[in-house]
């Protein structure tokens, strides 16, 4: 693996189009060096998942993703036997005179083992990036199971034995705070909170990701989004929404915002009808803010 320093990470993040504060690079760097998982929390759409993707690209390794959901258990996360395949194999070989022991050994071999993300990640030769997405959606039982794997770095399969990790993946856990994560998990991780970006940072992100956008339009979009986030909405739009919107408007070859366009395209940004209604009511006021400030800027 490449030697990676703090400034390399910062440079790589920038090259990958990930605009970040200094703290983010530091957290990534330390989690790699100290070999601790990185727990990233923050509101939806601020680029939590993106961190893992950028890390994988920057390190030039594979990204293995485990999406968590309620009811996720070890057969989805770790391994499972390929039962159908095993049955077929047995049927095919019962006539051929292979001894029973031989047969048993061959059914419970790696050939019939379906590796799920976690097992896949720790048995790679080069350490990959393992992204455990929205870990707070999984049940608490899964959390403790995860802790076990993360501290022992081995997986025991009754039929085969213990599989030792050949590599320690870089682990990124993300969470939306839908559930408070256990203290034990927190302690094993480095913690990073990412908030909505400020105006300057968001502008930089928009320009990096949507380079074809008009300068004035991008400024107006970011001011508008900033003002929008000040309102008390059900679902506050994240950076992902800003980018969608910027792309949409840039695709329409606009160079500034006006009331009609905003009204027509608001569905790109807001995903809740109540928010939609509130925003439409307050639209003139919001736009006034946007217009006035952009003239000064």
């Amino acid at each position: 693996m490449k030697k990676v320093g703090l400034d390399t990470i910062q440079r790589m993040l920038r090259e990958q189009g990930y605009i970040s504060e200094r703290g983010i690079a530091m957290s990534i760097y330390l989690s790699m060096k100290l070999e601790k998982p990185l727990l990233v929390e923050g509101p939806a759409g601020v680029g939590k998942t993106e961190i893992a993707k950028v890390m994988a690209r920057a390190l030039d390794t594979q990204l293995i993703r485990l999406q968590c959901y309620e009811g996720l258990d070890s057969t989805d996360a770790l391994y499972e036997w390929n039962y159908q395949h095993q049955l077929l194999y047995l049927k095919m070989n019962t006539e051929s005179g292979v001894s029973k022991d031989e047969l048993e050994r061959s059914i419970f071999s790696e050939r019939f083992l379906l590796k799920r993300p976690i097992l896949k990640a720790i048995t790679r030769e080069a350490p990959p990036v393992l992204l455990i997405d929205e870990v707070d959606r999984a049940d608490e039982e899964f959390e403790s199971f995860l802790l076990e794997v993360l501290s022992d770095w081995q997986v025991t399969i009754p039929e085969i034995g213990t599989i030792e990790a050949t590599s320690r993946p870089f682990i990124v856990l993300t969470g939306n705070r839908t559930r408070e994560l256990s203290e034990a998990l927190r302690r094993r991780c480095l913690y990073l909170w990412i908030d909505y970006p400020g105006y300057e940072k968001e502008l930089a992100i928009v320009r990096a990701k949507v380079p074809e956008i008009d300068q004035r339009l991008s400024e107006q979009i970011c001011i508008f989004m900033d003002a929008l986030r000040q309102m008390k909405l059900e679902k506050t739009p994240g950076v992902a929404e800003t980018l969608d919107w910027a792309r949409a408007l840039a695709g329409m070859h606009l160079d500034h915002l006006d009331k009609q366009t905003v009204e027509d395209t608001l569905g790109v940004v807001l995903k809740d009808w109540q928010d939609m209604r509130h925003t439409k009511d307050a639209l003139s006021e919001l736009l006034e803010k946007t217009g006035v400030q952009s003239r000064i800027g």
Binding site: G23, L30, E183
Partner: peptide, 17 residues
């Protein structure tokens, strides 16, 4: 850098950060 590193290692939730 010193401060950032300490913050990254010692904080375990948003409030602490």
């Amino acid at each position: 850098l010193f401060k950032e590193a300490l913050s990254a290692v010692l904080c375990k939730n948003r409030h602490q950060q």
